[in-house]
Simulated assay, not measured.
Amino acid sequence: MPQAVGVIQTLGFPPVLAAADAMVKGGRVTLVYFDLAERSEFVVAIRGPVSEVTLAVAVGIKAAESCYGGNVVSHYIVPNPPENVLAVLPIAYNAKVERFRT
């Protein structure tokens, strides 16, 4: 089954927390990356089947924007990322997230 990567970047911490929570509850996905981007922007990445990631990102965007002061800076979905992308970016399933993998 093709796997996808979905990413949401927000301005501030509360919106990214709301987005991450909504994404893992809104689809059969695994949270694989979370970090501070720059200028108080945060980024969260999920992986899972393409249809589930698409749904989860949509739910995450809605949750982040409905949060007080919520501002989504950017978002994107990469369906079936190639191996060279997985080797370079920190979005692979690792030991920390493997037990939560869906």
Rank of each mutant, 00 (worst) to 15 (best):
R47H: 12
K96F: 11
T102D: 04
G26D: 13
L17C: 11
V78A: 14
P81H: 10
N94K: 15
I91S: 02
P81L: 10
L11S: 13
P81Q: 09
E52A: 01
L89V: 14
F34D: 06
A95M: 11
P90R: 06
N80K: 11
G48V: 01
S40I: 09
H75V: 05
R101C: 12
S51Q: 06
K96S: 12
P49F: 09
F42S: 02
A22T: 02
V32F: 11
A56R: 08
A19P: 08
R101S: 12
F13Q: 15
P81S: 14
K96Y: 11
A92H: 10
I77T: 04
A45F: 11
R28Q: 12
K62F: 05
E65A: 10
G60K: 08
R99M: 10
I61M: 07
E83P: 11
F42E: 03
P15T: 08
R101K: 15
V29S: 02
E65C: 09
N84V: 15
P49E: 15
P14G: 04
P82A: 15
E83A: 15
F13G: 14
N94I: 15
V24P: 00
P81W: 13
G26Y: 03
P49G: 15
L31C: 09
V88E: 14
R101M: 14
I46F: 01
A87L: 09
A95Q: 11
V43I: 13
S74G: 12
P15R: 04
P90C: 09
P79N: 06
Y33P: 04
H75C: 09
P79Q: 01
P81T: 08
P82Q: 11
P79K: 03
A37M: 14
A64S: 05
A92G: 14
M1W: 05
L31G: 08
R39A: 13
V32K: 06
M1G: 04
V16N: 04
N84E: 15
G26M: 07
G70H: 07
A20V: 03
P15C: 12
G70P: 10
